[in-house]
């Protein structure tokens, strides 16, 4: 009975179904079929034998990283760097957006906006070299501190493991602040000007308008981006900054999950281990998105996703 109604329903909407069909096929082929590759994690994958003829090892590769002390260090680094990045990245972008929206001169506003998002287009290879050069013991940063008498001897900041998180967060904020601000700026532009006019009539100051109109109005945008970012917590810093800015002396603080998978998986041609790690990564991210979404219902009605 139910089946017939479903079939009828489908028939009634056949045009819509036909329109959706190509995309469902696309999903199946490009998003679901590749999941078959996950079975690689349970065999000792050798390309010459293929997935199904390689030796079955069960959970060996999962056990390998779960029992590896280094893995927890790596996890700590990943969370720390991602957390710092999300926190400072979000607030700096909101700050910039709000400040920019308060600027009256359009020319000035446009210039600042363009200049601030330009670093987004610079490759991490270049950014890491810039930071290496600036922060080396013969670099500009040391030179300035020495000449101002703030320090008495040069410090090689890039080889201090304890300063790595700070440097990498700073570089990410510098690189992405302008770019991230674009979204918030767009959200601010969409705020109904009548609200501001009404506030002006009520004698609200500029700071008051920011506090009571701008911020609350862009809150849904902020929350949505936060939830998405939290889901991406394991990948937020990505491979490039950690790999390129890190070095042998800071590796205990710079190695994140992506670099770990690269060193112990890809570089050693241990594809099974890489796959096992990425399964862990996907599962964990899913859990994070789900919990972040649940959490966000406390702040916004209905949740995000």
């Amino acid at each position: 009975m139910v089946k017939r109604t479903l079939a009828q329903k489908l028939w009634n909407q056949r045009i819509l179904v036909a329109m959706a069909l190509p995309f469902m096929v696309w999903m199946l082929v490009f998003n679901f079929a590749p999941l078959m590759g996950w079975s690689m994690a349970f065999v000792n994958y050798k390309p010459r034998y293929g997935i199904f003829s390689s030796e079955w090892v069960g959970l060996k590769y999962f056990a390998e990283f779960i029992t590896d002390n280094r893995f927890y260090e790596v996890l700590r680094n990943t969370f720390a760097m991602s957390g710092l990045n999300i926190f400072f990245g979000t607030f700096s972008a909101i700050g910039l957006a709000v400040l920019l929206s308060e600027v009256r001169s359009t020319a000035f506003k446009r210039t600042i906006q363009t200049v601030s998002y330009l670093p987004h287009f610079i490759s991490w290879v270049v950014v890491s070299n810039i930071f290496y050069t600036f922060l080396s013991s013969e670099g500009l940063f040391n030179d300035v501190l020495l000449r101002l008498g703030i320090t008495s001897e040069t410090v090689s900041y890039m080889s201090k493991e304890t300063s790595f998180w700070g440097i990498v967060t700073f570089s990410q904020v510098w690189k992405e602040m302008g770019w991230n601000a674009i979204l918030y700026l767009a959200a601010i532009t969409a705020i109904d000007p009548q609200l501001y006019e009404a506030a002006t009539l009520d004698g609200v100051t500029r700071f008051g308008k920011i506090r009571y109109i701008t911020i609350p109005c862009i809150m849904p945008t902020i929350m949505m981006l936060l939830v998405l970012n939290i889901g991406n917590l394991l990948n937020a810093t990505g491979f490039d900054p950690s790999y390129l800015m890190g070095n042998d002396m800071t590796v205990n603080y710079s190695e994140n999950l992506a670099v770990y998978a690269y060193t112990y998986g890809m570089q050693m041609s241990r594809y099974s281990m890489s796959t096992a790690l990425s399964i862990f990564n996907s599962m964990f991210s899913l859990l994070l998105v789900w919990s972040a979404n649940k959490l966000s219902t406390r702040f916004i009605e209905g949740g995000i996703l």
């Binding site: 000792n44 390998e64 080889s159 590796v251 050693m268």
Partner: peptide, 22 residues
Amino acid sequence: QAGSDAELALTKADTVRHTEVP
């Protein structure tokens, strides 16, 4: 042998000496 436990041990050891020797 590529991908063996022995090779993994060496890769790990190489990481350790890279950080510890300095």
